Amino acid sequence: MNKNINTTLGLFYINSIIFLLSIFILDVNAETKIIAKRGDTLFKISKQYGVPLKELMYKNNFNDATKIIEGEMIIIPLKLNAKDNKNEYLNYKVVEGDTLYKIARNYNINLNDILSLNNLSNDSYIKLDQIILLPKGATYKIENRRENIKLASKKVFYHKTSRIENLSAIAEIHKISKEKINTLNKLNDPIKINPNIKLKIRRSKESKWLKYGSITINWTDWTYFDGNYVAQAKTKKNTYFYLAVNCTKRALNNTLDNSYWTNWYFPKTDFEFKLINDFCDQDFNF
Results as ranks from 00 to 15, higher is better:
174 H>F: 06
47 K>I: 14
228 N>Y: 08
28 V>C: 12
38 R>D: 15
138 A>Y: 01
254 N>V: 04
267 P>W: 00
150 K>E: 11
61 N>V: 10
243 L>Y: 10
35 I>N: 01
270 D>F: 11
88 E>P: 09
146 R>Y: 10
67 K>T: 08
278 D>G: 08
130 Q>C: 06
58 Y>C: 09
100 L>M: 04
67 K>A: 09
190 P>V: 00
201 I>F: 06
283 D>R: 09
272 E>C: 07
186 K>Y: 09
7 T>A: 12
233 A>P: 11
104 A>S: 09
67 K>E: 09
216 T>F: 07
246 N>P: 00
18 I>S: 08
208 K>N: 15
201 I>H: 04
203 R>L: 14
156 V>F: 02
269 T>K: 15
223 T>D: 06
59 K>Q: 12
33 K>F: 10
3 K>E: 15
35 I>E: 07
108 N>M: 02
231 A>W: 04
43 F>V: 08
85 N>S: 14
70 E>A: 07
243 L>Q: 12
35 I>V: 00
205 K>E: 13
164 I>H: 03
32 T>V: 05
151 L>T: 00
223 T>W: 09
71 G>D: 04
149 I>Y: 13
34 I>A: 05
263 N>W: 08
7 T>M: 13
132 I>N: 00
102 K>F: 02
175 K>D: 06
157 F>S: 07
252 L>K: 01
255 T>K: 01
166 N>F: 05
141 K>S: 06
131 I>T: 10
15 N>A: 12
251 A>T: 12
235 T>S: 14
219 W>E: 14
65 A>Y: 10
206 E>Y: 01
196 N>Q: 04
265 Y>C: 03
40 D>H: 03
133 L>H: 02
11 L>Q: 15
93 K>E: 05
101 Y>E: 13
20 L>N: 10
134 L>Q: 02
253 N>G: 04
29 N>Y: 10
68 I>L: 14
192 K>V: 13
58 Y>H: 11
87 N>S: 14
157 F>V: 05
215 I>T: 05
177 S>Q: 07
144 N>S: 07
217 I>T: 10
190 P>N: 01
263 N>I: 12
144 N>E: 13
264 W>N: 09
